[in-house]
Structures are given as structure tokens and as C-alpha cells.
């Protein structure tokens, strides 16, 4: 079953200062199946985040259309959960209040979400921190809190925008493992959400995903679509040699554009 379908999407930004047009995405076609973990990699400026924002419904494409379970995406929906790179936690709410924000905002009676929120707090390892405020947490804990906040809505699709870019390496490794566990990598695809995971880290993409999509830049478009046939659960059967080959293969696709991206910035 197709969870996300992107149909010839283009997005052009017009600079309000110079009037200059920047083509962020050009004729992008993409499909993500139910239960599939798709990582998107590409150099800076390839429109990764733009694509995710369009699927999240917080940005409209200039042309083309996006569908979620065959329904056109016209705006944000709690069915498509988003995890932001900078957490975007509400700083005035405690961990618990942040996590329960979705159900509360949607008017779900508290009897229906109390237990689930308690469970999520322990799933993401924040037991005992539920009354803390975001500024009292470490970066890793903030991202755990944001993950639990997304999960509290029980979305059918996870949209993750470089969620681990701002945490240290050890925390990142731990969180990668946790994300796969919570996603349900040992479950059949029908029982777990579709994931679109944007990252700068090619090794991270190879480690986590079933498929890695490489976007090119100027204009942003799909350059390559690679299947990652490594055994799951990934952290139990790590095959560093096979991972290395795949990482190299993807890096070959990106190298030249990444270099020119650095020169331009």
C-alpha cells in the first residue's frame, strides 16, 4: 500500500528582496510504501526540507501534488507526524505537557491519552523528567521528548527532518537504535508506520533505511534511488563492510554537487 505519493512536484521560491527565482524542487516523483523506512540524502540546497514540508502540509508546491494514502495533502494533519531538527518543543510546557499537546489540541478527552502519554514517557526514557521544562533537558532528551510528542498522535507516517543533526555522536547512535525499535523494525510492514527520514549523514541513511533516495541540487530532483538490503534488526546484525560499500556508492553520487554547494555557500 502506498503511504506517500509525490506526483511531479515543483517548488519555486521567489526572493522578496531581489525578486530572484530559486527552483528548490523540479518534477520530483516519489513513492513510499506503508511500513517502509526511506532516507533522503543530498547536498545542501537540494530541497530535502522543502520536500518534507510539502508532505507535512506546511508548504504548498508550486505545481504537482502530494498524496497520503491516496488523499491529496492540502494542509497539516496529525496523521503525518513531524520531528524537527531543532526539536521545536514549546519552552513553556513541561515534558509531559509537550508530549500530550497533540491529543489535547485535538480535544481528545484526557482519560483517553493519560495512559498512552505515561507509556510514551517511559518508552523514550524520560521517566522522572516529566515535570521538567525543555531548557532543563539535554539535547538528546529534548529530541526524545519531541519524538514522544509526535508519537502521542499515533501518526501513520513519520516525517523526520534531520532529527539527530543537533545531538552528540553517542546520543545519536543510541537514538538511532531507539527510533528503529519504536518504529517496529521486527514487525511486519503492515503494522508499522512509513518513515521519511531526512539526513546529512549517508552512513546514518544506510544504517536506518530500507531505501535511500539521493536528491541533486539546483534544481532539486531525484538522482538515485537505492534499495538497502541489510538484515534487520540492523543493530543486531551490523555488516560494516556492506554498509561501507553502500555509503561509498551514495557518496559518489553526491560528491561533486556537495563540493560545489560548499563553494557557493
Amino acid at each position: 500500500m502506498t503511504a506517500i505519493r509525490i506526483d511531479r512536484i515543483s517548488k519555486t521560491f521567489v526572493s522578496s528582496r531581489t525578486g530572484e527565482q530559486v527552483v528548490a524542487l523540479k518534477d520530483v516523483d516519489l513513492e513510499v510504501s506503508q511500513g517502509e523506512f526511506v532516507a533522503i540524502v543530498g547536498p545542501s540546497g537540494c530541497g530535502k526540507s522543502t520536500l518534507l514540508s510539502i508532505i507535512a502540509g506546511i508548504l504548498e508546491p508550486t505545481s504537482g501534488a502530494a498524496y497520503h494514502y491516496d488523499a491529496p495533502i492540502l494542509g497539516p494533519s496529525p496523521d503525518r507526524g513531524v520531528l524537527f531538527q531543532d526539536y521545536a518543543l514549546f519552552p513553556w510546557l513541561s515534558v509531559r505537557q509537550n508530549i500530550s499537546f497533540g491529543p489535547r489540541a485535538r480535544g481528545v478527552p484526557s482519560s483517553e491519552w493519560q495512559q498512552e502519554v505515561d507509556r510514551l514517557i517511559s518508552v523514550v526514557g524520560l521517566s522522572g523528567f516529566d515535570t521538567r521544562l525543555p531548557h532543563e533537558l539535554s539535547g538528546g532528551m529534548r529530541q526524545r521528548c519531541a519524538l514522544a510528542r509526535m508519537l502521542a498522535n499515533e501518526p501513520r507516517t513519520w516525517l523526520m527532518d534531520e532529527p539527530l543533526a543537533a545531538v552528540d555522536l553517542q546520543t545519536r547512535t543510541l537514538l538511532q537504535e531507539e527510533i528503529l525499535r519504536i518504529w517496529g523494525e521486527d514487525q511486519p510492514p503492515a503494522d508499522r508506520p512509513a518513515v521519511m527520514f531526512i539526513t546529512h549523514g549517508i552512513d546514518e541513511a544506510v544504517l536506518l533505511a530500507d531505501r535511500v533516495i539521493v536528491l541533486g541540487r539546483r534544481p532539486g530532483r531525484v538522482k538515485a534511488d537505492l534499495k538497502i538490503d541489510l538484515n534487520r534488526p540492523r543493530f543486531e546484525h551490523r555488516d560494516l563492510a556492506a554498509e561501507g560499500v553502500l555509503v561509498q556508492q551514495i557518496w559518489d553520487q553526491i560528491r561533486d554537487e556537495a563540493r560545489s554547494a560548499i563553494l557557493e555557500d
Binding site: 507535512a56 502540509g57 506546511i58 494542509g75 497539516p76 494533519s77 496529525p78 503525518r80 507526524g81 513531524v82 524537527f84 521545536a88 518543543l89 514549546f90 499537546f101 497533540g102 489540541a105 485535538r106 510528542r149 509526535m150 498522535n153
Partner: peptide, 8 residues
């Protein structure tokens, strides 16, 4: 945006 995608 975070509030929007959470269904607020």
C-alpha cells in the same frame, strides 16, 4: 508549524 502538524 509544530502546533499545526500536531493538529492544533
Amino acid at each position: 508549524n509544530a502546533a499545526k502538524v500536531l493538529g492544533a
